[in-house]
Design a protein around this nucleic acid. Sequence first.
DNA 1: TAACTTTATTATGTCATACATAATACTAAA
DNA 2: TTTAGTATTATGTATGACATAATAAAGTTA
Lengths: 235, 235
Amino acid sequence: MKEVFKSIDTQSLVDKVEDSLINLLHERKLKVGDSIPKELELASALGVSRTVVREALMRLRMMGLIDTRKKKGAVITSPDIFGNLAKSLNPYILSDDTLKEIFEIRLVLEVGMADLLFSHVTDGDIKELKEIVKNEPLSAKHRMFEASYEIAFHGKLYQITKNETLKKFQGLLLPIFDFVEKSSIFKPIPGTQKFTSHKQLITILEKGTPEEFRNGMRNHLENHFARLRLNKGGK
Amino acid sequence: MKEVFKSIDTQSLVDKVEDSLINLLHERKLKVGDSIPKELELASALGVSRTVVREALMRLRMMGLIDTRKKKGAVITSPDIFGNLAKSLNPYILSDDTLKEIFEIRLVLEVGMADLLFSHVTDGDIKELKEIVKNEPLSAKHRMFEASYEIAFHGKLYQITKNETLKKFQGLLLPIFDFVEKSSIFKPIPGTQKFTSHKQLITILEKGTPEEFRNGMRNHLENHFARLRLNKGGK
DNA sequence: TAACTTTATTATGTCATACATAATACTAAA
DNA sequence: TTTAGTATTATGTATGACATAATAAAGTTA
């Protein structure tokens, strides 16, 4: 790690100001609602033009750290972590490999969330889940038709975890899941069959254990796992 | 959903230009490496000032959609989804509830990633894991000292999944895990005890099944789960 | 005094212009 | 053909100006 040349700053002015501003937030331990100095004040204090300050402030705003309003100035906000991520998570821009990886993450989450489900699930949740699957078609023939049930059922599971961050994350990834399933990234599995059903999962959630649920969900998602295995060559 | 007033655009000019640019990317199906028009060209084409175009371009850059270089202009890049998220994921700014939720997500991921591990793990990986835990202290007394082993071991697991997106996500969350463990957000658990050890997990990964690994990992993380249960009142 | 209306202020949003800088393309010399 | 130097060009930064909207202040009415 020894560097002969002193690492010259390849950073642009905006980068530096951005860092300064973030440091400002930390040092002063500013809380939500607090306001930071005006653009012109910052510009003169930091010795740069208002242009640079504005660009740096815009970055903070994109990160969800601040919210700027006319006259009022910029105020600290509780950052919506994934809020800004949504735009860059566009399936048309992401590479196929990345899309596959995101799809994998979904499987990981749903298999792993069993404990959260069991520690938060209520009778009302069970009732809702049963309502969702009540009219679900038994056969796996109408895949397209089934999609809405899939989303409703699995979405409800995320909601049961009472983990807002996780729920937001899922909402973010949903269009990607949809895209991946419909796209030709994955070769279809011949002779797709049903494994553990939604109804069975509900029964486990109602009367079983997290361990059983994990295995049930793993089995339920077997078709997806199989597609991943079949399409491993791509990497 | 009926609206009496036609929804006036509360968007700023920059917002609109941003949308226009993203649409441009989609419509033209631009690939990585392709370049987009110069700032001045965009400005005149869209009928706004260069300032506005620049701010919009900066947003795209923050999203990781483009990379701008002098003289060359802006070129499409393969977006690093989580790269730009890092700065806003600052523990000092996130609320305690959000921090807890992120911590939960870690647990979910590690319990759920068993299948990915088994489908990618190599002999070399097993060897590396064994190397990591070789000098690991047996007792749980030196918690601070143990931290580095924890990070090395669990980090290696993420790496074994061969899922770059997941690995990046973990790298992103790591400072948060660290912060949460050290902070007083969680009350400590009296009489913390060891459950499934790292060594046992390796053995399962080498000779066992995904199902066994999930349960082993769940058990291994029991202390963390217990802390979550104990601190549930906060919400 | 309290509630409402109008006016004034202020800080951000947008625009225009100018120059600096660095990366590229071009040209000339060896 | 390679290298070195030069010119070009698009972004980076600075400055000044005005528009706009949100707030604060002042004024009015009951």
